[in-house]
Each structure stands twice: as structure tokens, then as C-alpha cells.
Amino acid sequence: YIYSNIEIEQIMRTAAKLASPKELRGCTYSTLFGLLAVTGMRIGEAISLDRDDVDLVEGILHIRRAKWGKSRLVPVSLSTQIALKAYAEARDRIIPHPATQAFFLLERGSRVTKCVAEWTFAQVSKSIGLRPQGKRWGKGPRLHDMRHRFAVKTLIDWYRAGLDVEREIPKLATYLGHVSVNDTYWYIEAVPELLQLATERLGGRQTARK
């Protein structure tokens, strides 16, 4: 599933309104979901971030416990850097003495777990119509689809900007933490709009050669 910009805004806005005694829950999940949308990180990577892994001055995230045991550095935009800093300030004000060094916290001062994050996302999705009401979780778009959206959006932007995608795609593979660049090429084959753009680019090259 590829989220639209409007759906991402709805998810973040709805998550920010999640009620809790200390008012940290909404802040945590709106920031967490937003981070996944703008970086394409895996949920496990995001919730594994410790405070020392988030450089709020340089705007760089250090992913230490990634899939396949790989580590990488993920630079973020200025707006994301500002959002993370605002969250950190709110978190430290609400939970001044947490039980963990985790960057993203639950209200009891412990690390956010994957199960709780996915359950919360399911509830948010149901409230805005992305999942059916009535069932505990419901079927529909997943948190991991944030990663797909980021990759697809990046590739589409590159095609439309006239960049050489074949030359740029290894950068995206590294940013996403893919073991093989073939994992990144999969998005071109799986998404009709990307396949169309790639076909048009190839057709243009062949015409130019003639």
C-alpha cells in the first residue's frame, strides 16, 4: 500500500490526539509514525534508537540494530530534526527519569515495543477509515508500508526530476539498509507508475540513439 500525503497527515494528526494521563502517548506516536514516513526506516529500527543514536545537532540517526546485523547512518531533513528535538524536550519534561535510554518512550518510562506500536497504528488507521471497524486489529495498510511509500516517492521524484535513476538507486539502497540493490529495484517492478516512468525513460534513450 502506498500512502498519500493526505493520509500521512491524517495519521499524524490523529496519533497526536491519542489520550493518556501524562499526555506523552500522542506525542510519541505522532513523532514515531512521522519519522517512519519521512525516512523509510523499519519500525524495529526506529524503536531501537537510543538517545545517543539521535544526533539532534547534526540531524543524523545511527541505526545500530538493523536487519541482517548491518549498521548505517541516516541523515534527516531540518524539519524532521526540529520535530525530533521538540519530542525529546517534551519527553524529558514528562518523564525526567526513564527506566531506559530509549529515544521513544511509553508513559511508564520504558521503550516502545513493536507490538504496542503496531496495535496503536491499527487503532489510528481504523479511526480514519484505513481499516474496518469492529475487529481488534482489522486488515489494512501496515506500518511497514510507510517504508514502501518512502522508497516509491523517492524514485518517482528522481524520475520526474530527470535524474539518472540507475546511478542514484544504490544511494537509496544504502539509505534504506537493503542488503542488495535488487531489493530496491523491486519497487520499480511492483508499482505501475514507477514501471511506466522507467519504460518511458528507456524509450527516450532508445529514440535518442536512433
Rank of each mutant, 00 (worst) to 15 (best):
I2M: 12
I2H: 13
Y3Q: 05
S4L: 04
N5S: 13
E7W: 03
I8T: 06
Q10D: 11
Q10R: 13
M12T: 10
M12K: 15
R13K: 14
T14Y: 00
A15D: 03
A16T: 03
L18C: 01
P21W: 01
P21F: 02
E23A: 15
L24I: 06
L24T: 05
L24K: 02
R25Y: 00
T28E: 01
T28G: 02
F33T: 02
G34I: 09
G34N: 08
L35G: 09
L36N: 06
V38P: 05
T39C: 07
G40T: 11
G40N: 06
G40S: 07
M41N: 02
E45W: 01
E45G: 02
I47A: 00
D50C: 08
D53H: 07
D53P: 02
D53N: 14
D55V: 06
E58Q: 14
G59I: 08
G59D: 08
I60C: 03
L61N: 01
L61S: 03
R64C: 10
R64Y: 05
R65K: 15
R65P: 03
A66Y: 06
K67I: 12
K70L: 11
K70R: 14
K70H: 12
R72P: 07
V74I: 14
P75K: 05
V76W: 03
S77N: 08
L78H: 12
L78I: 15
T80Y: 03
L84N: 03
E89Y: 10
I94C: 01
P96T: 00
H97S: 15
H97E: 15
P98W: 00
P98D: 00
A99H: 15
T100F: 00
T100W: 00
Q101E: 14
A102H: 00
A102G: 04
F103M: 01
F103N: 04
E107P: 09
T113Y: 08
K114W: 12
A117G: 09
E118V: 15
A122M: 11
S125F: 09
K126R: 15
S127W: 05
R131Q: 07
Q133D: 13
W137A: 12
L143S: 01
L143N: 02
H144R: 08
H144D: 02
D145E: 07
D145T: 08
D145H: 10
R147P: 07
R149E: 08
R149A: 11
A151M: 07
A151G: 10
K153S: 15
T154K: 14
L155N: 07
D157V: 05
D157H: 12
Y159R: 05
Y159E: 07
A161S: 14
E166G: 15
E168V: 11
I169M: 04
P170E: 04
P170R: 09
K171Q: 13
A173Q: 03
Y175R: 02
Y175A: 01
V181E: 14
N182Y: 13
N182G: 12
Y185T: 08
Y187L: 11
I188G: 10
I188S: 09
E189P: 03
V191D: 11
E193L: 13
A198F: 06
R201L: 04
R201K: 13
G203M: 10
T207G: 05
T207C: 09
T207F: 12
R209H: 11
